[in-house]
Write a protein that binds this DNA or RNA. Structure first.
Lengths: 192, 192
DNA sequence: TCAAATAATTGACCGTGGTCATTATTTGAT
DNA sequence: ATCAAATAATGACCACGGTCAATTATTTGA
């Protein structure tokens, strides 16, 4: 049991992913159809499901890859000193998350790890984001009476709340940044 | 344009809802199939979609009805004086929300009102819950430096965060109550 | 070198949500 | 009572994700 997977397997998977990425770049994640992925990749439909558990597994992979890029940039950035700059630095990620309703729903569904015990790409990204954010919380002015882990989880809760309301027509007048700040300032800042 | 809808319409809709409720009571929300609803109701498939925009619209109605019952009870209850009792009083709603993964996902997706400008049954329930919770926040010990509205929205954010993590296998060891309390106490309580 | 074992691929088929042109029923005006 | 317009119901049909027994390709070992 040394090299179980043949290189044909990798080639096929690469073709599938490449086809999928092409479709997404043309029409967005929402426009992806399994049938079109396989036809572009030149394989049969069954092959797709031999490589991905279901369509969502592919979407998770594609979206996870994008998130990872954004997180790469995020972890290079200097730790923000104010809530305002913290929000600003998270903005690229937030904008990607709301770029399509479909994307947001999928991230939401898989952010708390998949239904089973195996954690998927999106769950990994959320965990990574939590780690990055936790590293920011040793700043001056941030409350100390709550574990950092709770604080970081709270930030994510407010991110999802903010983005969820962003899709609500009644609330789109308030920009993402200021809404998120109105949550994070009372959550993070130490009071008198 | 006096009485546009004929009573036949109401009768058909009632039959559909009754059939749907029967199916749900037998096998849960996840087990509902449109085909079975229409066959039990004795109507054609197309009729279903003349009464409900899509399957989700029916699910929203059924789940919204349940939530409304729970909210009826909730709004009768005395305002809690501690975060612990607040969580306890919300517990029936929380348990319903996590009774099925399907139910949680649907509530999450429609809690921020539907995609369009029309607010659906679940969105109404969330708004109602927000109102009830806001009424609780005039208690001793609750912070005053943040608008009640923000405070209430934050509670909802933490509820969703808690329930989301509840489905994550890695986190099921922590019970809902204590997890939610660990968010709400730092969020709500005034500090020294 | 080749046969057995293992792995990858195929595509016909299915389940289920959703559509729409056609048909049936109700209503209101005469 | 009659009939035309408005409203409701029908069911064949489609889209699309997902399955699986059969087939083909690859690896292994003697």
């Amino acid at each position: 049991m040394e090299k179980q997977i043949q290189k044909r397997t990798l080639a096929t998977r690469a073709k599938l992913v490449a086809a999928a990425e092409a479709i997404v770049s043309e029409g967005g994640f929402d426009a992806l159809r399994v049938e079109e992925v396989v036809s572009r990749a030149g394989v049969a439909k069954g092959t797709f499901f031999a490589h991905f558990r279901d369509k969502d597994a592919l979407m998770e992979r594609l979206i996870g890859a994008r998130l990872d890029c954004i997180l790469d940039a995020l972890s290079e950035v200097p730790a923000p000193v104010t809530v305002g700059t913290m929000v600003d630095e998270m903005l690229p990620m937030l904008h990607f998350m709301v770029s399509e309703r479909y994307v947001f729903d999928l991230i939401l569904r898989y952010s708390g790890a998949a239904l089973t015990d195996d954690i998927g790409p999106i769950g990994m990204c959320i965990a990574r984001h939590e780690t990055v954010v936790m590293g920011w919380l040793n700043a001056e002015g941030v409350r100390r009476d709550v574990p950092l882990k709770i604080l970081a989880e709270g930030i994510q809760a407010f991110v999802f709340q903010t983005l969820g309301l962003h899709f609500c027509a009644l609330h789109t007048d308030v920009p993402i940044q200021s809404r998120l700040r109105s949550y994070l300032e009372p959550w993070l800042l130490a009071r008198s």
